[in-house]
Amino acid sequence: MEPTNNMERGPALQASLGRRRKGEITERVAHGLFLAAALVSVATTVGIVLTLFVQSVGFFSEVSPWEFLTGTEWSPILKDENGARHYGVLPLVAGTMLVAVIAAALAIPTGVGIAIFLSEYAPDRVRKVLKPAIEVLAGIPTVVYGYFALTFVTPILRSIFPELIFFNALSAGLVMGLMIVPMISSLSEDAMVAVPRSLRQAAYALGATRFEVALRVVFPAALSGIVASFILAISRAIGETMLVTIAAGATPRMTLNPFESIQTMTAFIVQVSLGEAPRGSLEYNTLFAVGLLLFFMTLVMNVIGSITVRRFRESY
């Protein structure tokens, strides 16, 4: 009986083993494909860094990095009255920072205020309506903010300050502030909600009032998360493009005067792109040199920001 059984089992076992071998191949192929998908993101980063570096080499072979980083005059496309072009990037950096600082000056108090209100004061029903309403601001495309700055905020500002130039850093900065408010408010709120309830209860038990609990207990305990939200929001403001292209002007200028027309790094990239600079020309390479600087500025800020967030998460 035994042998016949074996003979009957034979082909079935064979088939099963065959299926298993086929299954193993499927497994390996699937594993490989999923890994490849994950590596696309690494390739993207490598691509960005390589692209920016390689193309910048062409630029820096003609312009010294020192002149680029410390020069205070930027006129890579138009020649000045002496027929010279200047490649000092500082005016673009100054313009970028000016807009970012104005944005932060509006967005930091507003965003933190909203976060404290939502996390410490608002009853659940109010919070459920207000939180998504504020977050809608984050979903609005930046061209729309540009339109808003140019057609609504600038005319109002000009009726208050008649000397204000039509394209100016102030209007772009204020609208940019509105744009980054939800970033600060939701990240800060997350940080405050994560503060243990026991800290609040202890403070209340000692007789603290509500605002004392919010400002003297919860706010300091969540401070690193809140600061991280500032850094990430400012990094976002530095990389923002369309809003400043539309509303802040195209005049690279070393100035801290918000009433003036300026140009940011991103707006410069757009200006050259719209002109379709011939590949390999110095103008074309300028794009990548400015892009490289922009990439590093935002990278450094993002890394600092995410390290700060992680620190604060570990402490509870």
Binding site: S41, L52, I269, G291
Partner: peptide, 24 residues
């Protein structure tokens, strides 16, 4: 490395992706 990389990519300014597309 992959995780860190994805977190950082999310913060790269969109115009930089445009430069990547242009060059690659």
């Amino acid at each position: 490395l992959i995780e860190l990389n994805i977190a950082n990519l999310a913060g790269v300014p969109s115009i930089v992706y445009g430069l990547l597309g242009l060059a690659v």
